[in-house]
Structure formats: structure tokens, C-alpha cells
Amino acid sequence: MSTTVPNPQSIPGTNASAVSRRWRGITSTGFSRVLGVATLVLVVWLVLFGLLFSPPDQTQQSSVRIMYIHVPTAWVAYLAFGVTGLSSAMYLFRRAHSLAWDRVAGASAEIGVMFMALTLITGSLWGRLTWGVYWAWDARLTTTAFLFVTYVGYLAVRRLGGSHQARAKRSAVLGLLAVIEIPLVHFSVELWRSLHQEASVANPSGDVKMDGLMLFSLFVGLIAFSLLYFWLVLHRQRAMYLEDQYDDADLDVALVERRAETKEHSRA
């Protein structure tokens, strides 16, 4: 049923000259370059603090260092999926139905899936060292795994084809459904069982149970990974914009060629 023919009229500001004026085929701007450099500096800083300066844990020894990656990746994944949900809502409920929101949603989901995979991998490595098993059927772990699978599905839906607007609407609906699905999954698994280590920083009582330097390293990690996320989203959604342009341009070129052919035929 679905066709791969996009409708150029439905996309605002999509003439070829606008593209070349703005980005000339690359996705960086002055701002994103500064952001990239800042991210790089912070990542180096995180490596130094995480691996060298911060002390080992009394009970967990050096395996505690996994936390400096595990917690920030989890945070970024949740942030990314939150942004996807928000952008999906913006696309769907704004009258303009701007594809820019759709691309932000898609870019954010891709990056979220990547970071969620990193969270699961680092978490299971840490689990093997601390609990003795790679995986435990704990509420938070299970919810995270479901979050991962749900957004893998979301990305699959984005690749279904059809016009850009069709893709945007379908995935926006799915992005919002995911937002209501996850609390339900979490609630049901929570009822089922719970084992995960209690949150050490964001616990309700408000007192932080952690060495100062460890806490500092953790915050460096959170900031570094957040910047990395923004840098990646900026680039990815611009790359997606170019991909969409390319699709549309392809159609235009094909149309011009066919027209030229028919002219030649009629002359001959």
C-alpha cells in the first residue's frame, strides 16, 4: 500500500538552494563545534577522575568505577526517551506538524537506544562482579530492558517507508504510546519483585551516602554524557534533514529526467 514517493509540497522550506546555503552538506555549526570540544574535554576529565583520582569502594573495590559510566548512560537514555516523547507530542499537537520535531524525536530515540544498550551492558558487567550474576529479575532492570526493546521497535517503525509525514505521524503516535506503556510495565514488574540497589544519590531522605570525590566524578560523568547527548542529537537530526532532502531531490531529478525523455521521444 505504502509508496516511497515523498510529497515535496508537504515539507516546509525544502528547496535545494536553502540546503546548500545553510549547511553545504555538513552538519556542524559554530555552536556544535564548541559543544563538541567541551564534551571531549569533559570526557577526558571523567576518564582521569573515574579511573585515577576517585578512591575504590570499601566493599566493591574498583568495580565501583563502572558506576561513572553506568549511571550517566542510564540518565542520558531516560533523557533521550523523554525528549522523544515530548517531540512526538509537539509534532502531533501543533497544527504545523513540523517535520523538525519528528526528526528530533527520531534522532533522540536512536541515541537513547544506544545509551540504553550501554547501560544494560555496563550494568550486567557490574552485576556479575557484585551480585555474581549478569542479570536479575529486578523491577528496575526489567523495566530498562523493556524500554530498550520498545524503542528498538520504535526505530523499526520509523523505517517502514511511506511519505515523510506518514512516517512522522506513525512514529509520533508510537512515541506517545511508549510514554504510557513504560509506567504500566514498571508498575507491574514492581508489584512482581524488587532487588535493585537503592538509589544512593536521589533517595527520598535527601542525604547523600557517598564519598565526596566519588560523587564529584559521578557529576562530571553526568554532565559529560549530557553534553555528548546534545552534540549527537544536533548532528543526527541535521543528518536526517539532509536524508529527507536527498529523498525529495531524488524524486525531483527523476521527474526532470522523465520529462526530458518524453520531449526527446516526441521530437524523434
Binding site: S2, F146, A156, V157, L160, L177, E181, F187, S188, V189
Partner: peptide, 29 residues
């Protein structure tokens, strides 16, 4: 959501199974 899309046969389980997990847990218990 998947109707009419290419590859819907393989897509549907991927979308559907995570969502129905709460039903599976709740109804089983």
C-alpha cells in the same frame, strides 16, 4: 499501526509483546 506497512508480519510481535507484558504478568499471577 502496523497495518499496510511492509514487513508488518515481523514487526507486529516486536511492537506488541513488550506492551502486553503487564497483562502476561498480572493475569498469570
Amino acid at each position: 499501526l502496523a497495518a499496510g506497512a511492509k514487513g508488518r508480519e515481523t514487526l507486529l510481535p516486536l511492537l506488541l509483546l513488550p506492551v502486553v507484558a503487564p497483562v502476561l504478568i498480572g493475569a498469570t499471577r
